[in-house]
Structure formats: C-alpha cells, structure tokens
C-alpha cells in the first residue's frame, strides 16, 4: 500500500514462547481530559490480547506523570 512505512509489525511476527516487551502510552497529555486514562487503557488492550494469543509472555512498559494505580473498569 502506498504511503505505508517500512518497519516490522507485531501482527506479522511469530511470538510463540517469546518474551515480548511492549511500550505503551497510558499517559494523559490532553489538557481537557478528552482522551481519558481509561480510554488509553482500553485502546491498549487489543495489543496485549493479540500478544497473548500469539503465545507470548507479555511485559508492559509505560510512562505516567501520576502514581495512581492503573484501574480499568469492567466492560
């Protein structure tokens, strides 16, 4: 596809039995809170689920300004 950047994509890789370290963005840079912490976490879940489905051991890394625990309501 035209305009696509050239880099490896997680979707294309074999992760069976692999140790996978994921850098996520759970921070909240938006001043108005329009994209909430919860929305960021919700958005990050499919990546984690995909890595688990592919058989990976999943380590998550993120940067947050506050120290509040990552709480995610049941959906």
């Amino acid at each position: 596809m035209q305009g696509q950047k050239k880099f490896k994509r997680m979707q294309d890789l074999d992760l069976q039995g692999k140790r996978v370290l994921i850098r996520q963005d759970l921070n909240v840079p938006m001043a108005d809170g329009a994209i909430s912490n919860d929305a960021r976490i919700q958005a990050s879940l499919p990546t984690i689920r995909l890595a688990l489905e592919k058989g990976a051991a999943v380590m998550l890394m993120n940067f947050r300004y506050n120290r509040s625990p990552i709480i995610c309501p049941m959906r």
Partner: peptide, 26 residues
C-alpha cells in the same frame, strides 16, 4: 530494557517524537 525481551513492541505514538530509553533506545 532490551535484554529483558526477545521482541520489543513500540506501541506508543504519543511518545515517538522523543528519543528516550524506553522508546528510541530500546
């Protein structure tokens, strides 16, 4: 950080403009 893993997955666009250890370095 790189030594912890077999595969590193960068999934944080909002931090991609900063060269930091957990983004560009790893």
């Amino acid at each position: 950080m790189a030594g912890l893993c077999d595969v590193f997955v960068m999934d944080a666009f909002g931090t991609a403009h900063r060269a930091q250890a957990s983004t560009e370095g790893v």
